[in-house]
Amino acid sequence: MTTAEREAVHRTAARAALGVPGVVALQPALAERLALAASRVVEAVGAGAAIAPVGAGVRCEIAPDGVWHLEVRCILDEDHRVVDVARRVRSDVGAAVDTCLVQHDAAPPLTVRVVVSVTRTIRPAACETA
């Protein structure tokens, strides 16, 4: 897996997940949060550019048998049924990453497995501050 492929998969998965109704945000994993906490540069960059790297909240690994394993960590709007939103995230992210890998001429087999982890649910009124 090249770095470009990995980054493209991250971005694609994050965009697909955020496009699902009921998904408020993606929650960075511990390693990403530690990197953010330890980095003053991010704060400075955040003053006028992207606050967190695109794809934060998506973990991506490729198994020796060629299967792509993705974990998407979501914060959901509590007005939606959790399992329904999670199913939609799994479906949309899987389809989007499939397409992305085909476009990047990734080596077959193109099997993508998506795990959706819901870390929080929040009220719609709190969505803007999530």
Binding site: V115, S117, R120
Partner: peptide
């Protein structure tokens, strides 16, 4: 992480989030 009610067992929710609900 707890498995949501789905046969594929790849949808999960944090216990803290479920307990709050």
């Amino acid at each position: 992480m707890l498995f949501l009610d789905d046969p594929d067992h790849d949808l999960r929710i944090a216990e803290s989030a479920a307990a709050k609900v």
